[in-house]
Write a protein that binds this DNA or RNA. Structure first.
Lengths: 219, 219
DNA sequence: AAAGAAACATACCGACCAGTATGCATGACC
DNA sequence: GGTCATGCATACTGGTCGGTATGTTTCTTT
C-alpha cells in the first residue's frame, strides 16, 4: 500500500524536493516565464529525464512550487505565528513584520516576495496560476481576518473595524512595501515603509473609551 | 538645424511612437522578458528594419517605454493633479485614487500597474531598468512628500507627520492594492482595498486640537 | 528467473527569439 | 545630377527553449 522506501542513496522524494527547491530559487530570481529548466537542472546536477519523470511539464512544476514551497513558507512566516499568540493579535502581526524585515537583509530585498512576484507576473496570463496563488492569498487574508475578528470580540482590537477589509489592506500594504524596497534595492526603505504598516496596526488597538465619530466620508 | 519634417505619409516620429505604444501594450500584458518583438511588429504592421532603426535593441526599447510612455502616464495621473489643488492636498490625493480606480474597470484590473509590473519583474535582474523605474517612483514620492509638507505648513495636513515616510507608504500601499486586485481579478477588491488607503489619508488631516500622544512604540 | 515498473540519463527536435546583413526607396545636399 | 543619409522592408542566422523519444539501471513482483 504505502510507498515503500527505496534503499537507494538517492531516493525519488529527495530528487523531487531538490527539483522543487531549485525551481523555486530560479523562479524567485527570474520569474516563471524566464525561468530556465536547463539552469534548474544544472543546479541540481540532474537531467531532463528526472524532471519530466516527476513533473508533467514546466507549467506543472510551477504550480507545484506554489503549492509545495511557497504556500508552506507563507504559512510558516505569516499564519502560524498568529495562532500562538492569543492575548495580543496586533502585537503578533507586528512581530511577524519585524521577523520578516529581518529576513530581508542584504541582497534578499532585491528579490522581493516570491508569492507576490509570481502573482504579478503570472495571474494576468495564466488562470490556473492565478487560482493557486489566489488560494494562498485568500488563506492568508482569512487567517488575518479571523485573528482580528477574534481579537475584536475579546476587546484586544478596536471593535469598529471590519476584519475582512482590514486584512485585505494589511496584506496589500505589506506586499506594497516589499515591492517598493525591492525596486529601491534598499533594506532601509523596507523598514521605513514597514513603519507605516506598524503605525496602521497600532491604530487598530482598542481606544480607551470615547465615542467621537465622523462618518462624513465620501460616497 | 531643426529636423525638417518629411512630407511622407508616414513620418518617422509617428512610426517611433507607434512602436513605443505597441511595445508598451505588449510589455504591459506579458512583461518585458516575455514581450515578443515579433508580436509588437505584427501589431504595428511594421518590420524589424523599422524597429532596429529607431531602437538599438530590445533593452533600449524597454527603457524608452519607461521614459517616454510610463513616466508621462504617472505624471499625468498622479502628479499633475496634485499641483492644481492647493487648498486641500489630501482631498486631491483621494481624488486621484477615485479617478485611478475608475480607470481600472473591467479587464484592466488584471493587467495591474505598468510601472510596478515592470519594476517587480526587472529591477532584480537589470540595474539600468531599476534606475529608470526608480527615478519615476522617486519623482512620484517626492511630489507627494512636497504636497504633504506644504499642506502641513498651511495647516491642511496634520503637522506631526513625516512627509517622506508618509509618501513612501502611500505609494507602496497603493501599488499593493492594485497588485492584490490584479491577482484577485476583481475590480471590487481594488475599491475595498483602496478604501484602506482613503482612510489612511483621512487620518492625515489636521486634528482639531488635542495633544494626546503615546510614543511607547517598540524599538 | 522472467517480467515489469520506477527512476533516472542521453540525444535529439521543432519553434521561437533577438539580432544582423542586405536591399531599396525617397528626399536632402552640394 | 550624382552622392549620401534617412527610413524602412526582407531574408537569414545562431542560440536557447520546452518537450520528446529512447535507452539503461535498479528494484519489485511473480
Amino acid at each position: 500500500m504505502g510507498v515503500t522506501r527505496h534503499p537507494l542513496e538517492e531516493n525519488p522524494d529527495r530528487t523531487r524536493e531538490a527539483l522543487l527547491r531549485a525551481a523555486y530559487a530560479e523562479i524567485h530570481r527570474h520569474g516563471f516565464q524566464a525561468a530556465s529548466l536547463s539552469r534548474i537542472l544544472r543546479r541540481t546536477g540532474l537531467t531532463k529525464g528526472a524532471l519530466y519523470h516527476h513533473f508533467k511539464n514546466k507549467h506543472a512544476l510551477g504550480l507545484a512550487v506554489i503549492d509545495e514551497v511557497i504556500a508552506p513558507l507563507v504559512e510558516a512566516q505569516w499564519i502560524d505565528p498568529l495562532k500562538a499568540s492569543g492575548d495580543d493579535p496586533i502585537g503578533a502581526i507586528q512581530q511577524c513584520l519585524y521577523d520578516a524585515a529581518r529576513g530581508y537583509d542584504g541582497d534578499d530585498v532585491r528579490l522581493g516576495c516570491p508569492l507576490n512576484n509570481l502573482a504579478q507576473e503570472m495571474s494576468p496570463i495564466d488562470e490556473e496560476f492565478r487560482l493557486h496563488l489566489e488560494a494562498v492569498f485568500q488563506h492568508w487574508r482569512d487567517s488575518l481576518a479571523e485573528v482580528l475578528a477574534q481579537g475584536a470580540r475579546e476587546g484586544r482590537v478596536a471593535a469598529d473595524i471590519v476584519p475582512d477589509a482590514t486584512a485585505v489592506f494589511l496584506v496589500a500594504a505589506l506586499e506594497g512595501c516589499v515591492g517598493m524596497a525591492k525596486n529601491a534595492g534598499d533594506p532601509d526603505l523596507l523598514r521605513r515603509c514597514g513603519r507605516g504598516v506598524l503605525d496602521y496596526l497600532e491604530r487598530l488597538r482598542p481606544k480607551p473609551f470615547r465615542t467621537s465619530r465622523d462618518d462624513s466620508g465620501a460616497s
